[in-house]
Write a protein that binds this DNA or RNA. Structure first.
Lengths: 210, 210
DNA sequence: TTGAGTCATTGACTTCTGGTCAACAATATA
DNA sequence: TATATTGTTGACCAGAAGTCAATGACTCAA
């Protein structure tokens, strides 16, 4: 990587960091592009070298924490799908909590923005989540953990719906309840209920999920 | 009602109708206030006689259909709570479908907008839904259908989370699946699972919810 | 070493739109 | 009929997103 590339990468990083801090603190709508660039120490126009729209920086913010979850799941090979999903739910809400309400609000608002049609089809946060979960289910079917007639697309939608429902509800209620408490008390029951009819594992009764 | 009041009511109605049509067709962000007022046949400034912010018209749109659901539920006195909720979920998604993706998108986006702090505390759509559901649960506890230690606030949050999760997911996937199909295949299982541990009814096993 | 080409950076500028407000006109009231 | 009230109007303002031509630091091949 030459000097030019290093410097460009550094500029991008500064923008993302400045953006995250400002959105966390004041909320997406309350700040403008110039606030971000000022904090990052660059000119306004530079923002548009790295992002097409003001909104695009929000997706960037989710990339790191959610990338980590994906890695963790790959290391869980062999574990029951309910355990993987339980981990996913748990970590998802952990990220939600650490990113804060303002960032999460914007993730969901952005996903619902009809103008948000990135060139890259996977550019939307929820599509990334969707593909990741679908992969887990497909693997479970392929190793015989789930029945062959499991409606993968539908189940994936259901799980995404649970996750975004929790996140949305948490934001709506202004962070009234503890996301992790929520996950513990609720998600596991739901995961159990969603999969009961499709699961094959003999040792299911011994699963950690109750 | 005198002439002035009648005419004002009519102007408001024209604005809501025009707004609904335009949002349905083009989406909230793609239209501006002048588009709405032009279609309604009034001047731009008139909009702000009736609504504080452009966003406020979206809440107005949900008032009629969701008001109807509330009325229906009041007529269901005596029925099991699972049946009431099943009806609620069903009718909720019916409204979601009939209002269309663009309107639903905006409902959720609006609920997540930190600037959306109407004077009237119940001015936010989700708070209306919340109070309505909480009322149903409270009644169920008072008549002994649910145990006294039922965590009403938490369960209400969970149900709201299910509803908004479904709606959000439907919008995200661009209306890919049938909302009512979703309700039938999924919600009933979830309702069942959410309440299982709190329900008292002897005839629960005979409940229509399976 | 050099100089032509590349590309990140800049910030003034354009464009758009949400929201305001003072003047006006239609209606109510005494 | 005169005065008060209140819905209506549209020019205007403010603010912010996004553009673009000029700049100059850096790259690389000769």
């Amino acid at each position: 990587m030459n000097k030019r590339q290093t410097s460009a990468q550094e500029t991008r990083r500064k923008l993302v960091t400045a953006g995250l801090e400002l959105i966390k603190e004041k909320g997406f709508d309350a700040i403008n592009v110039e606030d971000i660039t000022k904090k990052a120490g660059v000119a306004k126009g530079t923002f548009y070298t790295y992002f097409k729209r003001k909104e695009d920086i929000v997706l960037e913010i989710s990339r790191v924490p959610f990338g980590e979850i994906a890695e963790e799941l790959q290391k869980m090979e062999g574990l029951a799908i309910t355990e993987k999903l339980s981990h996913y739910f748990h970590r998802f809400m952990e990220c939600v909590e650490s990113c804060g309400i303002n960032v999460c609000r914007q993730w969901t608002r952005d996903v619902l923005d009809p103008n948000n049609v990135p060139d890259n089809k996977d550019g939307q946060k929820w599509k990334y989540d969707f593909e990741m979960l679908k992969g887990i289910l497909e693997e479970a079917v392929s190793i015989g953990e789930l029945k062959n007639d499991t409606p993968i697309e539908l189940l994936t939608h259901i799980i995404i719906s649970e996750l975004y429902g929790m996140m949305t509800c948490w934001c709506m209620s202004d962070g009234k309840f503890e996301p992790l408490d929520w996950t513990d008390r609720f998600c596991k029951i739901q995961i159990d209920s969603i999969f009961k009819q499709y699961i094959r594992r003999i040792n299911y009764a011994d699963s950690k999920i109750k």
